[in-house]
Design a protein around this nucleic acid. Structure first.
Lengths: 255, 255
DNA sequence: CAGTCCGTTCGACCGTCGTGAACTTTATTA
DNA sequence: TAATAAAGTTCACGACGGTCGAACGGACTG
């Protein structure tokens, strides 16, 4: 085993969580398989699984262990805890209905964008698989919109922490270039992403803030390359997103 | 502290999970508050929180700790892991569109019904707060439909384990009464719940099974008291649910 | 029926988690 | 602005409990 990861972390808990992460990756697994992957004795793994089972974090189907409903309940609580997030759900769907583009709401958490809601019609099932995933802010539309709302010092902090990893050839990797783009975004009120994160994918994003100015997260619409190249149409769509975010912020302030 | 809960469970992991559960209950809390509630020193709790934070199971907002995106990701995986569950989503929404009643899909897990999807239009936000919750089978429409698909021995096991807690005055508490109802359900293909679980709430439920006969879970529609008293209308609605489940099972068998 | 492969149980040792106190930081009051 | 309090964080030590390896038992195979 040997856990030298971080200082002052409880090994037992880390191991338990790593088992959960492995079960996510493998879509369920048997004791032996887990033990081999984690390079630990079966008995140890078994102990963890028994423990996780009492809390329904895992369940047993025959001999394979899978993630269980306890996780689902807690995880879902992340989305329903905050009035902001609950409210964002219907706005995400409204955005999809109005534009026809896949719509997303992300929350800003510790310098990352976390998928909270997506709406894209029933056909596109895969979109829901990303809930809870964390994306960088520097190479996504909502991310840049969020950064544009933050004081420069905070942005620097975030960049220091996560860097500016280059996902595609269009990813911005120079800080000054990013900062000048953030200024422009700040003026026009929305951000555009042209294949900076995923090849052939464009997006328009707008940040959502509280009255106090605190950033909550952001909304975006996503489409294939060139969906937003016609600058007239782009402005129209950006207008729709911006107006929707305004409505969202308004309704939130009344709650 | 003192954990005498179950035999052979890892205390450290249990404590970590209990902190998570407490954070769910309190919608986030500060170190001291958690320490008091759990009757443990601040430093202990702090250690757990630090550990959970490295895995993003909790995040810090100022000085209060909340459930984090790591949980959301893992929890959501429970719903997207299985083709059955992913597919069930669109059928749940279709059911709502066709009937106008709040629609639910639950999975059967270890003798309980676990909320996986609900559809009820955007207005009713509260419905989504129950995802991951576990309900008994004996006093819910989908639950009874599920039990009706199982061999009697398995039903007995489940009843032995969880009993037949009386939620309302209409809850069935006698095994033989339940078994004769299960027989009827088995014949007619759907189950009805008249305030057996929640006062003033009626429901119609149908179980979904694999080709092999294994129970996957069940669909239901729910409405206020007397929504389904007109026996003609009830049969019509039950037909819709049953047909939808058939389609679902068919599509699943093709995948 | 023997052989293999898993999952589970058991006991002992060693490492690590829990503890309380010390330290730091932030908030409060005068 | 200094003093006090309250909360968050760090630290070192000792006891407890988690890890490990081996042994057991059950299921499947040839």
């Amino acid at each position: 085993m040997a856990h030298n990861n971080q200082a002052n972390t409880l090994n037992t808990t880390i191991t338990s969580i790593e088992i959960l992460e492995l079960l996510e990756e493998l879509d369920g697994a048997r004791v032996t398989e887990i033990a081999e992957r984690m390079d630990a004795p079966k008995s140890t793994i078994h102990g963890h699984l028994m423990t996780l089972k009492t809390k329904q974090f895992v369940i047993k189907r025959g001999d394979i262990y899978c993630l269980g409903p306890g996780l689902l309940r807690l995880g879902n609580h992340v989305r329903t805890r905050k009035e902001e997030f609950v409210l964002a759900r219907e706005f995400t769907e409204k955005l999809f209905e109005e534009t026809g583009f896949r719509s997303t709401f992300v929350a800003e958490m510790e310098g990352k964008a976390v998928f909270i809601h997506t709406a894209s019609g029933n056909r596109m099932r895969w979109a829901h698989e990303r809930l809870g995933s964390r994306l960088n802010l520097h190479n996504t539309s909502f991310g840049k919109a969020i950064l544009a709302e933050m004081p420069r010092s905070r942005v620097e902090q975030i960049l220091d922490r996560f860097g500016m990893p280059q996902e595609t050839e269009h990813t911005i990797t120079d800080r000054e270039v990013l900062f000048s783009e953030l200024e422009m975004i700040s003026e026009q009120g929305y951000a555009v992403n042209h294949e900076e994160n995923i090849k052939d994918l464009h997006a328009i994003g707008v940040a959502a803030t509280e009255q106090s100015g605190n950033v909550i997260g952001g909304f975006s619409i996503t489409g294939p390359k060139n969906s937003f190249t016609d600058s007239e149409k782009k402005r129209q769509l950006a207008d729709i997103v911006t107006k929707l975010v305004n409505e969202y912020e308004l309704e939130l302030s009344l709650a």
